[in-house]
Protein backbone atom coordinates (compact mmCIF):
# COMPACT_ATOMS: atom_id res chain seq x y z
CA UNK A 1 0.00 0.00 0.00
CA UNK A 2 1.10 3.53 -0.78
CA UNK A 3 0.24 6.68 1.13
CA UNK A 4 1.21 10.34 0.92
CA UNK A 5 2.16 12.15 4.10
CA UNK A 6 0.32 15.44 4.73
CA UNK A 7 2.75 16.82 7.27
CA UNK A 8 1.01 20.18 8.10
CA UNK A 9 2.99 23.42 8.24
CA UNK A 10 3.29 23.25 12.01
CA UNK A 11 4.58 19.68 11.92
CA UNK A 12 7.01 20.46 9.10
CA UNK A 13 8.39 23.63 10.64
CA UNK A 14 8.29 23.14 14.40
CA UNK A 15 7.78 19.46 15.18
CA UNK A 16 9.64 17.35 12.61
CA UNK A 17 9.89 14.47 15.10
CA UNK A 18 6.15 13.85 14.65
CA UNK A 19 6.56 13.43 10.91
CA UNK A 20 9.60 11.23 11.38
CA UNK A 21 7.65 9.04 13.81
CA UNK A 22 4.70 8.84 11.41
CA UNK A 23 7.00 7.69 8.60
CA UNK A 24 8.57 5.06 10.89
CA UNK A 25 5.20 3.59 11.91
CA UNK A 26 3.88 3.47 8.38
CA UNK A 27 7.03 1.94 6.94
CA UNK A 28 7.17 -0.59 9.77
CA UNK A 29 3.68 -1.67 8.71
CA UNK A 30 4.77 -2.00 5.10
CA UNK A 31 3.28 1.22 3.74
CA UNK A 32 5.27 2.95 1.04
CA UNK A 33 5.35 6.60 2.11
CA UNK A 34 5.53 9.48 -0.28
CA UNK A 35 6.05 13.12 0.68
CA UNK A 36 4.77 15.60 -1.95
CA UNK A 37 7.16 18.51 -1.64
CA UNK A 38 4.73 21.10 -3.03
CA UNK A 39 2.53 20.95 0.09
CA UNK A 40 2.70 23.91 2.48
CA UNK A 41 -0.26 24.78 4.72
CA UNK A 42 -3.96 23.88 4.68
CA UNK A 43 -4.96 27.42 5.65
CA UNK A 44 -6.82 26.56 8.80
CA UNK A 45 -5.51 29.55 10.73
CA UNK A 46 -6.62 31.98 8.04
CA UNK A 47 -9.95 30.22 7.69
CA UNK A 48 -10.68 30.33 11.41
CA UNK A 49 -9.59 33.95 11.69
CA UNK A 50 -12.04 35.24 9.10
CA UNK A 51 -9.87 35.11 5.97
CA UNK A 52 -11.61 32.19 4.28
CA UNK A 53 -12.26 34.19 1.14
CA UNK A 54 -8.50 34.49 0.50
CA UNK A 55 -7.85 30.76 0.62
CA UNK A 56 -8.31 29.76 -3.00
CA UNK A 57 -4.53 29.56 -3.69
CA UNK A 58 -4.00 27.21 -0.73
CA UNK A 59 -6.91 24.95 -1.68
CA UNK A 60 -5.56 24.73 -5.26
CA UNK A 61 -2.05 24.05 -3.98
CA UNK A 62 -3.24 21.25 -1.72
CA UNK A 63 -5.31 19.68 -4.48
CA UNK A 64 -2.37 19.78 -6.92
CA UNK A 65 -0.01 18.24 -4.38
CA UNK A 66 -2.28 15.35 -3.40
CA UNK A 67 -4.52 14.67 -6.38
CA UNK A 68 -2.64 11.51 -7.37
CA UNK A 69 -2.19 10.10 -3.87
CA UNK A 70 -4.10 6.86 -3.23
CA UNK A 71 -4.34 7.73 0.48
CA UNK A 72 -3.35 10.84 2.40
CA UNK A 73 -2.25 10.46 6.02
CA UNK A 74 -1.76 13.28 8.48
CA UNK A 75 -0.76 13.33 12.13
CA UNK A 76 -3.27 16.09 12.81
CA UNK A 77 -6.99 15.71 13.42
CA UNK A 78 -7.45 19.42 13.07
CA UNK A 79 -5.79 19.81 9.65
CA UNK A 80 -7.54 16.66 8.43
CA UNK A 81 -10.83 18.26 9.49
CA UNK A 82 -9.97 21.44 7.60
CA UNK A 83 -9.64 19.52 4.35
CA UNK A 84 -12.46 17.06 4.94
CA UNK A 85 -15.05 19.45 6.36
CA UNK A 86 -14.27 22.77 4.74
CA UNK A 87 -12.40 22.39 1.45
CA UNK A 88 -15.32 21.26 -0.72
CA UNK A 89 -17.54 24.07 0.57
CA UNK A 90 -14.76 26.63 0.09
CA UNK A 91 -14.09 25.54 -3.49
CA UNK A 92 -17.80 25.71 -4.26
CA UNK A 93 -17.93 29.16 -2.78
CA UNK A 94 -15.20 30.30 -5.13
CA UNK A 95 -17.44 29.08 -7.94
CA UNK A 96 -14.93 26.44 -9.01
CA UNK A 97 -17.02 23.28 -9.43
CA UNK A 98 -14.15 21.30 -10.92
CA UNK A 99 -11.94 22.10 -7.95
CA UNK A 100 -14.83 21.27 -5.62
CA UNK A 101 -15.23 17.84 -7.19
CA UNK A 102 -11.47 17.30 -7.05
CA UNK A 103 -11.14 18.21 -3.36
CA UNK A 104 -14.22 16.19 -2.52
CA UNK A 105 -12.54 13.14 -4.03
CA UNK A 106 -9.31 13.96 -2.20
CA UNK A 107 -11.12 14.58 1.10
CA UNK A 108 -12.53 11.05 0.94
CA UNK A 109 -8.94 9.74 0.94
CA UNK A 110 -7.67 11.91 3.82
CA UNK A 111 -7.02 10.04 7.05
CA UNK A 112 -5.92 11.23 10.42
CA UNK A 113 -3.12 8.87 11.48
CA UNK A 114 -5.06 6.79 14.04
CA UNK A 115 -7.93 6.40 11.58
CA UNK A 116 -5.58 5.27 8.86
CA UNK A 117 -4.03 2.66 11.14
CA UNK A 118 -7.29 1.25 12.51
CA UNK A 119 -9.66 1.77 9.55
CA UNK A 120 -7.54 1.55 6.40
CA UNK A 121 -4.89 -0.88 7.65
CA UNK A 122 -7.04 -2.65 10.25
CA UNK A 123 -4.19 -2.63 12.76
CA UNK A 124 -4.33 -1.88 16.46
CA UNK A 125 -1.02 -3.34 17.64
CA UNK A 126 1.61 -1.41 15.70
CA UNK A 127 4.48 -3.19 17.48
CA UNK A 128 5.43 -0.34 19.78
CA UNK A 129 7.02 -0.65 23.20
CA UNK A 130 6.69 2.27 25.58
CA UNK A 131 6.97 1.44 29.30
CA UNK A 132 5.53 4.65 30.71
CA UNK A 133 2.43 6.08 32.38
CA UNK A 134 0.50 8.01 29.72
CA UNK A 135 -2.72 10.00 29.61
CA UNK A 136 -4.65 10.94 26.48
CA UNK A 137 -6.16 14.35 25.64
CA UNK A 138 -9.00 13.95 23.12
CA UNK A 139 -8.31 16.93 20.81
CA UNK A 140 -11.51 18.74 19.79
CA UNK A 141 -11.40 18.55 16.02
CA UNK A 142 -10.21 14.95 15.94
CA UNK A 143 -13.03 14.06 18.31
CA UNK A 144 -15.92 16.21 17.11
CA UNK A 145 -15.21 16.94 13.46
CA UNK A 146 -13.66 13.79 12.05
CA UNK A 147 -14.85 11.49 14.84
CA UNK A 148 -11.73 9.44 15.55
CA UNK A 149 -13.63 8.01 18.51
CA UNK A 150 -11.73 5.36 20.43
CA UNK A 151 -9.11 4.68 17.73
CA UNK A 152 -6.21 6.52 19.45
CA UNK A 153 -6.92 4.84 22.79
CA UNK A 154 -7.17 1.40 21.21
CA UNK A 155 -3.80 1.95 19.57
CA UNK A 156 -2.29 3.18 22.82
CA UNK A 157 -3.64 0.27 24.85
CA UNK A 158 -2.01 -2.17 22.43
CA UNK A 159 1.44 -0.69 23.07
CA UNK A 160 3.64 -3.01 25.12
CA UNK A 161 4.61 -1.84 28.60
CA UNK A 162 2.37 1.21 28.55
CA UNK A 163 0.07 2.23 31.36
CA UNK A 164 -2.79 4.34 30.02
CA UNK A 165 -4.53 6.50 32.61
CA UNK A 166 -7.86 8.13 31.87
CA UNK A 167 -7.75 11.93 31.79
CA UNK A 168 -10.70 13.58 33.58
CA UNK A 169 -12.71 15.73 31.13
CA UNK A 170 -10.47 14.40 28.38
CA UNK A 171 -12.61 15.88 25.59
CA UNK A 172 -12.83 19.38 27.06
CA UNK A 173 -10.91 21.92 25.00
CA UNK A 174 -7.40 22.83 26.22
CA UNK A 175 -8.03 26.44 25.21
CA UNK A 176 -5.66 26.62 22.25
CA UNK A 177 -8.00 27.38 19.35
CA UNK A 178 -5.26 28.88 17.12
CA UNK A 179 -5.43 32.67 17.26
CA UNK A 180 -7.92 32.34 20.15
CA UNK A 181 -4.90 31.63 22.37
CA UNK A 182 -3.54 35.10 21.74
CA UNK A 183 -6.58 37.29 21.12
CA UNK A 184 -8.40 35.81 24.11
CA UNK A 185 -5.23 35.06 26.07
CA UNK A 186 -6.73 35.28 29.56
CA UNK A 187 -9.60 32.98 28.66
CA UNK A 188 -7.31 30.57 26.87
CA UNK A 189 -4.93 30.33 29.81
CA UNK A 190 -7.80 29.70 32.24
CA UNK A 191 -8.85 26.74 30.11
CA UNK A 192 -5.24 25.58 29.95
CA UNK A 193 -4.99 25.74 33.73
CA UNK A 194 -7.95 23.36 34.05
CA UNK A 195 -6.48 20.98 31.51
CA UNK A 196 -3.10 20.97 33.24
CA UNK A 197 -4.60 20.35 36.67
CA UNK A 198 -6.43 17.33 35.24
CA UNK A 199 -3.22 16.09 33.63
CA UNK A 200 -1.29 16.45 36.89
CA UNK A 201 -4.05 14.60 38.75
CA UNK A 202 -3.39 11.52 36.61
CA UNK A 203 0.25 11.47 37.77
CA UNK A 204 1.30 10.58 34.25
CA UNK A 205 4.80 10.94 32.85
CA UNK A 206 3.52 11.75 29.39
CA UNK A 207 0.43 13.42 27.95
CA UNK A 208 -0.41 12.56 24.37
CA UNK A 209 -2.93 13.71 21.74
CA UNK A 210 -3.61 13.31 18.01
CA UNK A 211 -2.72 16.97 17.43
CA UNK A 212 0.64 18.62 18.04
CA UNK A 213 -0.96 22.08 18.14
CA UNK A 214 -2.96 21.27 21.31
CA UNK A 215 0.19 19.71 22.72
CA UNK A 216 2.22 22.82 21.88
CA UNK A 217 -0.23 24.79 23.98
CA UNK A 218 -0.30 22.27 26.83
CA UNK A 219 3.48 21.91 26.72
CA UNK A 220 3.91 25.69 26.90
CA UNK A 221 1.97 25.67 30.16
CA UNK A 222 3.61 22.55 31.58
CA UNK A 223 7.10 23.93 30.93
CA UNK A 224 6.25 27.29 32.44
CA UNK A 225 5.23 25.41 35.58
CA UNK A 226 8.22 23.05 35.43
CA UNK A 227 5.60 20.38 35.93
CA UNK A 228 7.82 17.48 34.89
CA UNK A 229 5.23 15.99 32.53
CA UNK A 230 6.28 15.63 28.91
CA UNK A 231 4.08 15.94 25.84
CA UNK A 232 4.43 13.44 23.02
CA UNK A 233 2.34 13.17 19.90
CA UNK A 234 0.47 9.89 19.52
CA UNK A 235 2.76 9.02 16.59
CA UNK A 236 5.88 9.31 18.74
CA UNK A 237 4.52 6.77 21.23
CA UNK A 238 3.38 4.41 18.48
CA UNK A 239 6.84 4.64 16.88
CA UNK A 240 8.68 4.00 20.16
CA UNK A 241 10.62 0.77 20.44
CA UNK A 242 11.27 0.76 24.15
CA UNK A 243 14.46 2.79 24.32
CA UNK A 244 14.19 5.86 26.48
CA UNK A 245 12.60 8.56 24.27
Amino acid sequence: MRAALFITCLGDTLFPEVGVATVRILERLGVEVDFPLEQTCCGQMHFSSGYGRDLLPLVRRFAAAFTDAPAIVTPSGSCAAMVVAHYPRLARRFGDERLAAEVEAIAARVYELSQFLTDALGVEDVGAHFPHRVTYHASCHATRMIHVGGAPLRLLRAVRGIEVVELPDAATCCGFGGTFSVNNAAMSSAMLTDKISHILATQSEVVTAPDRSCLMHIDGGLRRLNAGVRVMHLAEILAADGDAP
Binding site: I7, P16, G19, L37, S181, G220
Partner: peptide, 25 residues
Protein backbone atom coordinates in the same frame (compact mmCIF):
# COMPACT_ATOMS: atom_id res chain seq x y z
CA UNK B 1 4.15 43.42 21.92
CA UNK B 2 1.36 41.54 20.20
CA UNK B 3 0.79 37.82 19.90
CA UNK B 4 4.20 36.66 21.16
CA UNK B 5 3.72 38.45 24.47
CA UNK B 6 0.11 37.29 24.75
CA UNK B 7 1.34 33.72 24.30
CA UNK B 8 4.36 34.02 26.58
CA UNK B 9 2.43 35.60 29.43
CA UNK B 10 1.52 32.11 30.65
CA UNK B 11 3.16 29.68 28.22
CA UNK B 12 6.63 28.88 26.98
CA UNK B 13 7.18 29.23 23.25
CA UNK B 14 8.04 26.04 21.39
CA UNK B 15 11.69 25.42 20.59
CA UNK B 16 12.52 25.89 16.94
CA UNK B 17 14.23 22.71 15.68
CA UNK B 18 17.57 22.49 13.85
CA UNK B 19 15.97 20.80 10.89
CA UNK B 20 12.51 20.94 9.33
CA UNK B 21 10.73 17.74 8.41
CA UNK B 22 11.25 18.34 4.71
CA UNK B 23 14.98 18.81 5.27
CA UNK B 24 15.07 15.49 7.13
CA UNK B 25 13.15 13.88 4.28
Amino acid sequence: PGPLAAWSSVRELPEIPQQTFREWW
